[in-house]
């Protein structure tokens, strides 16, 4: 987990982080922390320790204040993941309409277990607790985009579309 690879924040990323900080009053910039972690993850795919240290620096707070937050919230990947992370909702309402079977299908299709990444580094499979699309399940989220009303056939097609690079991130 503890990668020491140094990171470089681009000028564009730094500008976005500055913008996030400026949304809050003087002295309250720490409120931008979650947004900054999201921005970093969108850029690097995951959140490494040097990334967190850099964010701590930008906010003039202790690194541990960033670690404790990044480890609390489930959206942040603290280890390297594939280019596309499929987070499949598995909570009650989605289960009622077949999320268990969908998760099994995706695992078989990509030939990976839960939390694993395909050998080409393209896909990681994770489960998520209630993603807030209960009426449109089964569903998954990838790079802030919801894919809803899924069937095994639709997921197969989705995987191909991602492989061809046809699907843009839903946000950030």
């Amino acid at each position: 987990m503890l990668s020491a690879e140094p990171v470089e924040f681009s000028g564009e990323l730094l500008a976005k982080m500055e913008e996030a900080k400026n949304l809050f009053p003087n002295g309250k910039e720490k409120s931008a922390l979650l947004k900054m972690l999201h921005l970093a993850q969108a850029e690097f795919g995951w959140v490494s320790v040097p990334t967190m240290d850099k964010i701590a620096d930008l906010l003039s707070i202790q690194p541990v204040e960033v670690y404790e937050v990044a480890t609390f919230y489930t959206m942040f990947h603290l280890e390297p993941v594939g280019k596309y992370v499929f987070e499949v909702c598995r909570t009650g309402p989605c289960m009622l309409v077949g999320s268990d079977q969908l998760i099994e299908h995706i695992g078989k299709k990509l030939n990976i277990g839960m939390g694993e990444t395909t050998s080409d580094g393209l896909f990681t499979l994770k489960t998520a607790e209630c993603l807030g699309g209960c009426g449109y399940g089964p569903l998954l989220q990838c790079r802030h985009r919801f894919h809803e009303h899924l069937t095994p056939e639709k997921v197969d097609e989705l995987i191909e579309q991602y492989k061809r690079g046809e699907i843009e991130p839903g946000a950030l």
Binding site: K35, E68, V69, F72, Y73, T74, A128
Partner: peptide, 27 residues
């Protein structure tokens, strides 16, 4: 008016956890 994101935590729907989170802390 400012809009700001959480990070994936059901507990932040509880109002005081939400405020903690909005202050950039654990929920």
């Amino acid at each position: 008016l400012v809009v700001t994101p959480g990070g994936g935590a059901y507990i932040c729907g509880e109002e005081t956890a939400l405020l903690e989170s909005l202050e950039g802390k654990r929920g």
